[in-house]
């Protein structure tokens, strides 16, 4: 799974949680909460959805990494990469 796949996956899950945000352009470095008006429950749901889809636990302490699209892709890519 490459970075573009991960990016698409994050965007898909966000639009499932917040359909109103579908199609809104977001910069990789933008705070998703500000750009898309997401609250703590939305971020909670995003962490749950990505954990289930990828089949691994995203620790609560790592949740802040998902606040930007670029940060989320970096984080998930790092988790998936063979060690």
């Amino acid at each position: 799974m490459n970075r573009e796949d991960l990016r698409q996956m994050i965007l898909e899950e966000i639009s499932a949680i917040a359909p109103e945000t579908d199609g809104v352009a977001v910069d990789d470095s933008e705070d998703l909460r500000e750009a898309l008006d997401l609250d703590s429950m939305d971020i909670f749901n995003l962490v749950v959805a990505l954990s289930q889809r990828l089949g691994f636990d995203i620790p609560d302490a790592d949740a802040p990494r998902l606040i930007t699209l670029g940060g989320g892709v970096d984080y998930l890519a790092g988790r998936i990469a063979p060690r």
């Binding site: 703590s40 909670f44 962490v47 749950v48 954990s51 289930q52 636990d57 995203i58 620790p59 609560d60």
Partner: peptide, 11 residues
């Protein structure tokens, strides 16, 4: 929250 999987965490 550190001790629980994502879907069981609290806000």
């Amino acid at each position: 929250n550190a001790a629980h999987p994502p879907q069981e965490r609290l806000l």
